[in-house]
Design a protein around this nucleic acid. Sequence first.
DNA 1: GATAAAGACTGACATATATCAATATTTTAT
DNA 2: ATAAAATATTGATATATGTCAGTCTTTATC
Lengths: 233, 233
Amino acid sequence: MSEFFEKPLKQCVGCQCMSQLFCLLNPQELQLVDANKINVNFKAGETIKKQGTFMTHVLSVNSGLAKLYLEGIEGRSAILRIVKPTSFIGGPGIYFDQRHHFTITALRDASVCFINLQVFKEILRMNQAFAEEFLKDFSRDVLTVYNRLIYLTQKQMPGRMADAIIYLHDEIFQQPKFPMILSRFELSELSAMSRESAVKVLRDFQKDALLRISDHEMEILDLDALRTISRIG
Amino acid sequence: MSEFFEKPLKQCVGCQCMSQLFCLLNPQELQLVDANKINVNFKAGETIKKQGTFMTHVLSVNSGLAKLYLEGIEGRSAILRIVKPTSFIGGPGIYFDQRHHFTITALRDASVCFINLQVFKEILRMNQAFAEEFLKDFSRDVLTVYNRLIYLTQKQMPGRMADAIIYLHDEIFQQPKFPMILSRFELSELSAMSRESAVKVLRDFQKDALLRISDHEMEILDLDALRTISRIG
DNA sequence: GATAAAGACTGACATATATCAATATTTTAT
DNA sequence: ATAAAATATTGATATATGTCAGTCTTTATC
């Protein structure tokens, strides 16, 4: 089993399960959050939040790993991103319609805080710096989706899969060897192709010695070559 | 020539060129905007704002029409949406990095207000209701991109083109007959396919009497059938 | 009104990708 | 340890889509 993301990263006053974002809060505000949140532990595979349900709380992932995805047509999904601790999860529903617009499922056992939405909004109103940092995070997520839209529609399969693997490297693990948190099927959902095609592209990558998959681990052998494949589409 | 969107829709105090959003401002705030904005007229085809440039101002489109698109790989573009008056345009750069993350080009002669970004942010801080409505608009745009990500990656060409046309009907013109504001090439950029494929799909639609294109007009003849094609992908 | 330029169109062909069917492997439950 | 279930793999095939080359049509310019 992997040791990634198993230890709590931060200890905010009176609360061990809050994202870095919450360090912009003063003790009074933190206490308000503390008094209006609950913590829930999820097992790998469990659904943390389901697309379409009412958003009564915002989420903060304290430990574990999760996938965040859009439920599309006829059961097909598009994975938007991997959620690692400590991450705050809100989404466009906070301001638009108080609904969740994606589903989040635990990939590893995960500890998640649910913070009352009204209280959270109240704090956003009270604390300008916090609000701006929150919006900055949200905007970064939006840019990720812009980027994904481009690469999923303008690149061919090898380029898309290379981007998926580079994403895991650059954004999630920051090292060439990391646990296979996603099945072939999930990798196909991250790169918009069929499961079988994902298998074939990964086989080709391994044949060309770009990476190695064994014992529940993926090891990137030639990151530069992957970046080249990403670039030429 | 079409009469769509040629007349100013709203007359805010002391300023004729502001989006509906701005009606949440009090006279004092409006005056602040007024004193820190400039109005520029663009001819059809001109670039209003270029992706990658610094965001010194936010935009408000007062009249005309524009396309808002992401510049992708090797000159290829993905049109995100059509901008009609009166629309406010900010984007994720406001909070993230003060850059524009899409390009906006006029499709018809357009009048655009440029509002100083710092002044705009100041007003966001001062006026809570305005800030929330602004974020609601932004969130709606994000949901549009979610939706686009799904349909561009999970539907085939006829479904994607049907969605593009339904978008023009439902969101922009709200009537079955409307001017051809987009070339075949631009329609292909809205539905993620090659120009030739767009031509062929549109030819098939016309052959099946779903729509008619003539004299710079598109007329939807069978919206229900288009919606069915959209649904079955 | 002639000419050039841009955009639209077409069919043939090449390529990318999905689907299918069959088998193999791994994981989970008993 | 074994059976059952889920996941992964493979090659053959069908389909979707892009590319190319050539022609046609419309629009703009002088």
